[in-house]
């Protein structure tokens, strides 16, 4: 068999693995989120297979395209988000398994693709010809503008630490050779910043203004029903896996599975820890207005990102910063 066919088969295989792993773990993460929220509120919470039933139900429901909506964009937007998150997961899993084989600039590709689900939400919201949906879409757009700046600043800290590498594989190898990025002052600061960014990227409280149930009734998703809504929900759940995985890879040293299989369990613990922090933040903070969110990210988080970059440059000379 020639090389091109082999490469195509390998790519399809990794995409399938990425999709299945992200969907299964993402559904678990969604259940974990809801269950932990329920326990915090002193309730019992949903059963374990609740996300599966929710998704199956949405698959069997009618899909309504609202009058006046742009039919193609309205139905294509959920698929765009799903495709993007699948590709990101595939790239991350392949890089974890073969760190030496990743391509130059895949960090930039991953960062671009991680914003595509948000763009899909914006597209779908504006295509659905509903004033509340377009309000949700515009809020999502402002949120993307708000969190991308601190996110990029936090990733630049990783680049400085890893000696200017823009390949995720090199970042993993650097961390395996010395120590994880988070084990330094600037790295820890950047990790904290990216935890806050993750909260906004996943549209979890206090940054859930784009889909605020109580004021704009689901916001961007208001006109979606059936399979289209199910695909949007699945994309959200898969992001619950992919985004923490990305943080584990660039800040916590990835998953060193070749060293010992115990490290996979260790990475799972790190993942659960990130999820718990996310759920606790979401349950203890009321929703902020979109202007407050922008002010928070630009005026409070971004300066810390600059401080982290300066510390990282100092860290090239003084160990530990």
């Amino acid at each position: 068999m020639n090389v091109a066919v082999m490469n195509t088969l390998q790519a399809v295989g990794f995409l399938a693995i990425g999709f299945i792993v992200a969907a299964v773990v993402g559904m678990f993460a969604h259940w974990f989120d809801r269950k932990l929220t329920a326990r915090i509120q002193w309730r019992v919470g949903p059963p374990f297979f609740q996300p599966v039933w929710d998704f199956l139900k949405l698959l069997t429901k009618e899909v309504i395209v609202p009058e006046g909506a742009s039919r193609f964009v309205f139905l294509a937007a959920p698929l765009l988000g799903l495709a993007a998150v699948t590709v990101v997961t595939a790239i991350l899993i392949r890089t974890i398994i073969f760190p030496a084989q990743s391509f130059v600039g895949d960090l930039i590709v991953v960062m671009y693709l991680l914003t595509v689900p948000s763009q899909a939400v914006i597209l779908g919201a504006f295509a659905s010809a509903n004033p509340l949906a377009s309000l949700g879409g515009s809020r999502e757009m402002k949120l993307v503008l708000a969190y991308e700046l601190p996110f990029i600043l936090a990733i630049i800290v990783v680049l400085i630490k890893a000696g200017g590498a823009i390949r995720i594989g090199e970042i993993i190898q650097y961390q395996a050779a010395s120590r994880p990025v988070v084990a330094s002052v600037s790295g820890a600061l950047a990790f904290l910043i990216s935890l806050l960014v993750m909260q906004a990227k996943l549209a979890k409280g206090p940054f859930d203004a784009p889909e605020a149930e109580t004021e704009i009734m689901g916001g961007a998703y208001i006109e979606y029903s059936g399979v289209a809504l199910g695909v949007f929900k699945l994309t959200q759940w898969m992001m619950l896996f992919t985004m923490p995985l990305f943080l584990i890879v660039v800040f916590l040293g990835g998953i060193n599975w070749a060293g010992s299989w115990l490290n996979v369990g260790y990475a799972a613990l790190e993942y659960l820890g990130i999820l718990v922090v996310m759920v606790l933040i979401r349950n203890t903070n009321p929703r902020v207005r979109i202007d407050q969110a922008m002010k928070f990210f630009w005026a409070m988080v971004a300066p810390f990102g600059v401080v982290a970059i300066i510390l990282a440059f100092l860290g090239l000379r003084f160990r530990g910063l």
Binding site: G45, P46, P47, Q50, D54, E213, G218, I222
Partner: peptide
């Protein structure tokens, strides 16, 4: 939510 019942806005 024990029974999967959720209040939705839309």
């Amino acid at each position: 939510e024990r029974f999967g019942i959720q209040l939705v806005g839309s």
